[in-house]
């Protein structure tokens, strides 16, 4: 006990350093989270929103409705969970491989490398609403450039309507991959640069092939940054909203409905704040499972060298 207090005293500065961040986190994350949990058990609507404590308590009613596959809201919510998973697997895996491939290419010496490294970050750096507005324009059926090329290459014979109906989720996937891979690439490139050249020099002297260098030096040394990257992509992916909202509007349709768009409409268009909050809590529970798995894997408390 004495030792413990001494340890706290010795590290006094560390506590001062984290206080500002801690306050922000409590006010914006932890309190609203608890609050959201409470709201999810109440029938909070347009009439009770001005004083949340007056909203009638209805127990797990919101959860039952949100998860009932036979109710229109529940059916759409379950579908939205499937959609976001499907979308996430496609976007994250394709994005990672493109990012890794490009990072390996850009780690080579060639003329204009600095400029190319800057240019590939353009999709990441421009605002989401800009990028997805442009893609929305490109995917327009009659006046868009996507259909023009698909027609001229003979891949389709009729102009396809991309942004309404079953195909719309694929249009969003393409745009999201385009927008997302440069970030992956940037992080992997930073990771590649932390690998000392000496390792490769030594490997070359030992006669290692390019594949062996990748397999035994690059890939293992990129593993720590890769796991953080995949964790963050998975977590952000469940948050995906901008691409769906900008490209497809506030009601993307059943095939491209995701939790965020559904919750937003449920709360701020239909004014069912309670059901919206309950859906948010369910979403959080799912993310909790993922993040516990990852946190166990990453073990942030350990001292890394």
């Amino acid at each position: 006990m004495h030792l413990f207090i001494q340890k706290i005293k010795k590290n006094r500065i560390a506590y001062y350093l984290i206080i500002p961040a801690l306050i922000c986190m409590i006010l914006v994350h932890i309190l609203p989270m608890l609050w959201g949990f409470i709201i999810s058990f109440s029938d909070l609507d347009l009439y009770t929103i001005s004083d949340w404590s007056k909203a009638p308590f209805i127990g797990i009613g919101n959860y039952l409705e949100g998860l009932d596959i036979n109710s229109p809201t529940g059916g759409r919510f379950l579908r939205s969970l499937w959609n976001i998973t499907y979308y996430g697997i496609a976007v994250i895996s394709i994005g990672y491989f493109i990012g890794l491939g490009v990072a390996l290419i850009l780690n080579q010496e060639f003329i204009g490398r600095t400029i190319v490294r800057g240019l590939i970050l353009l999709p990441y750096i421009i605002p989401d609403s800009v990028a997805y507005s442009v893609w929305r324009f490109m995917f327009q059926a009659r006046i868009g450039i996507v259909n023009k090329y698909l027609l001229s290459w003979g891949l389709i014979s009729e102009t396809k309507v991309w942004l309404v109906g079953d195909k719309s989720i694929y249009a969003v996937m393409v745009a999201s991959i385009w927008k997302g891979w440069p970030f992956t690439c940037l992080i992997l490139l930073a990771g590649l640069q932390t690998i000392p050249f000496e390792l490769y020099d030594a490997a070359k002297i030992d006669g290692a092939s390019i594949w062996q260098q990748f397999r035994y030096i690059t890939f293992p040394l990129l593993m720590p940054i890769t796991s953080v990257l995949l964790l963050l992509s998975t977590l952000w992916n469940f948050n995906a909203f901008n691409q769906f909202y900008v490209m497809l509007g506030d009601d993307p349709g059943v095939a491209a409905e995701v939790p965020s768009t559904l919750i937003l409409r449920e709360a701020f268009n239909s004014f069912h704040y309670g059901i919206g909050a309950a859906m948010s809590v369910i979403l959080m529970a799912i993310m909790l499972i993922f993040s516990i798995l990852y946190i166990k894997k990453i073990r942030p408390g350990e001292v890394e060298h």
């Binding site: 961040a21 994350h29 309190l31 709201i39 909203f241 965020s260 709360a267 809590v281 959080m284």
Partner: peptide, 19 residues
């Protein structure tokens, strides 16, 4: 810190608005 990252923004939106 790592866990607050995982909670989707949509989770905070409604309580935040109410707050």
């Amino acid at each position: 810190v790592l866990s607050t990252q995982m909670f989707p923004g949509i989770l905070f939106l409604i309580p935040y608005f109410v707050m």
